[in-house]
Amino acid sequence: MKSWLLAAAMVVATGSFGWADGLYWVVGNRATNSCDIVTRNPVIVGDIWFADGPYKSRDDARLARSSIRVCPKDDSAAE
Rank of each mutant, 00 (worst) to 15 (best):
D47C: 01
A8G: 12
I37H: 01
G53A: 03
A77S: 12
T14V: 11
P42M: 01
A77I: 10
T14H: 04
P42V: 04
G46Q: 05
A13G: 07
V12T: 12
A61E: 03
F17H: 12
W49N: 05
V11N: 00
T32F: 14
L5H: 10
R58C: 06
I37W: 02
T39L: 06
A13Y: 10
V26F: 00
D52Y: 14
A51C: 09
D60I: 00
V26W: 00
Y24C: 07
Y55T: 01
N29S: 11
A7K: 07
A51S: 15
D60E: 10
W4I: 13
P54V: 03
E79F: 10
S34A: 14
T39R: 09
N29Q: 05
W4D: 13
A78Q: 06
D75W: 09
D47F: 05
R58A: 11
A78N: 10
N41I: 08
D74H: 13
W25F: 08
D36Q: 09
Y55N: 01
V26D: 01
C71P: 02
Y55C: 01
D47E: 11
R58G: 04
T32E: 13
L23E: 06
A64Q: 06
G53P: 03
Y55W: 00
D52L: 13
L5M: 13
W4N: 12
V43P: 02
A78G: 07
A64Y: 00
D75N: 14
M1I: 07
C35N: 04
A9H: 08
N29H: 09
V11F: 07
E79T: 06
P42N: 05
F50R: 08
S66Q: 13
A64F: 00
L23W: 05
Y24K: 04
L23Q: 13
N41W: 09
D52T: 14
V11R: 05
E79A: 07
N33Y: 13
G18W: 10
I37D: 03
V27W: 00
D21G: 10
M1H: 11
Y24E: 04
L6K: 11
G46Y: 01
G53N: 03
R30D: 15
A7V: 09
D47H: 04
G28Y: 01
D36V: 00
C35P: 08
L5N: 10
A8H: 07
R62L: 15
W49I: 08
A31G: 08
D47G: 07
S67I: 13
D59R: 07
I44T: 08
W25S: 01
W4G: 11
F50G: 05
V45I: 10
I48E: 05
Y24I: 03
R65G: 06
L23F: 01
P54F: 03
R62I: 12
N33F: 08
G46I: 01
